[in-house]
Simulated assay, not measured.
Amino acid sequence: MASGSVERESPVARPGGVSVGDLVAAVPRRLVEEAVDACGLDGPVPDGELPLHLTAYVVMALCLLPGEPVEDVAQTVVAELSRPDGVRGVAPGPLTASGIGRARRRLGPDVLRETFSLLATASSDWVVLGDRSRYAFATFGAAARIGVAQCWRVPPQVPLPVLEVLRDGSYLSVLIDPDLTACERAKCLLEAWSGVKPDPDAAHTVRVVEDGDADRLVTTLRDPEEVTAAELADAHRQWRRQSATDGGPCSALRGPGGVRSTDPDLVHQEIWAHLLVEYAVNSTTWA
């Protein structure tokens, strides 16, 4: 795509065919607007500014298309939402990086978090799958705090001490924020050993499935009666094979730099956007 240009009939897509249109289909505007209302942000839109539902899709599209300039991504979103079969929105003024930044600050970190929570509530059997190239404690913790089921293949350097071995060979462990001090991490480990429920901002009790010599899966699904270690390992391998074949979920969030923002609120905003994009890419790939 040439800089500044948008082809309305062919929205920009990631390799593997996941487009902004797929994103809009997977994350319905109805849920985004419910999230805006729940966060008390349903007031009038300043003249010439992006409406909040459009801003939400722009942030998600920035995660879907990490190599694209901000203005081009925003233009693509506006074009897609203006299509006859798309989700109509209020046409904003000229789209500039500064204007998009203002809109993102108005949106804040909570709307996309609430949107993700609404999606999770609507999909009770939904399990987030993630790979080690995109694993981060903050991302895992953000979803865990709202009760979303997850299963991630984690990097080999992530410490996972054995707390209790389960009957299917998996074991319970504690996932601790690596940014804590050594003393804070030691305290979390001692609490886990003693059976104290960890502070969710600092640590999470998880189940670990060892799949081969190097691969370890970390999941919030802790009951082997609900899903066995073998079933989790098989499902995750199948997901990775599909991803390697068609550029699907595993590659969807791989972008230079991970997040674009430095402001803490906008970083949290992008974390939730990444999780929503992961959902959208999985929905498109496995549809």
Rank of each mutant, 00 (worst) to 15 (best):
G195Q: 08
A252P: 00
L166S: 09
P11T: 04
A192L: 13
H204C: 08
A229T: 05
E7R: 13
V165P: 07
L190W: 12
P66K: 02
D263P: 07
A2M: 07
A143D: 09
A56V: 05
P109W: 11
A235M: 06
A26F: 01
P28A: 03
P28M: 04
A142C: 05
T220M: 03
I100F: 00
D47K: 08
A252N: 04
I271T: 12
R240H: 08
Q242D: 09
E191F: 08
V24K: 02
E7M: 10
L112P: 03
D110E: 12
V208Q: 15
P11E: 04
A38N: 13
A61W: 02
V165I: 14
V58D: 12
D179C: 13
S123Y: 10
R8W: 10
P46F: 05
R167E: 13
W239D: 06
G141S: 15
V158D: 01
V78D: 00
R83L: 11
G195T: 15
A214L: 14
L217S: 08
D125Q: 09
N282R: 15
L232G: 01
S3N: 06
L266I: 04
A35E: 03
P84T: 12
A26M: 02
I146Q: 09
P264C: 03
T121S: 14
G89C: 13
V90M: 12
E278C: 04
P51T: 02
Q269R: 13
P66E: 06
D72K: 01
Q242H: 14
P94L: 13
D110F: 04
V12Y: 11
L50T: 00
G93H: 07
A25G: 08
R134D: 05
E49H: 11
R106K: 01
P11L: 05
G89R: 08
D265P: 06
V267A: 04
A244N: 12
L64A: 02
V70A: 02
L221H: 03
E231W: 06
V148D: 01
R14A: 15
A144D: 12
D263M: 14
P178Q: 12
L95Y: 02
V259P: 10
T262G: 09
P84W: 00
L232Q: 09
L180V: 07
R153Q: 14
D42G: 11
L31Q: 12
L31S: 10
P264K: 09
H274P: 01
R260Y: 04
M1P: 07
G48T: 05
L50W: 08
D263Q: 09
A2G: 09
V20G: 04
E225G: 13
V70C: 02
A38T: 03
D234W: 07
G16Q: 00
T55H: 03
E270C: 07
R106H: 09
V281Y: 06
A122K: 11
L163V: 02
L276Y: 05
F137K: 01
C183N: 15
P198I: 13
R105W: 14
A186T: 13
R134T: 08
L166P: 02
W272L: 10
D265N: 11
R254W: 05
I176A: 10
S19R: 00
A38E: 13
A25L: 04
L118E: 05
A74Y: 00
S170V: 08
V162M: 10
L175C: 06
P46R: 07
L23Y: 01
Q150Y: 00
E270Y: 08
R241H: 11
T181D: 07
R153T: 15
D85F: 05
G212N: 06
L41T: 10
R185P: 09
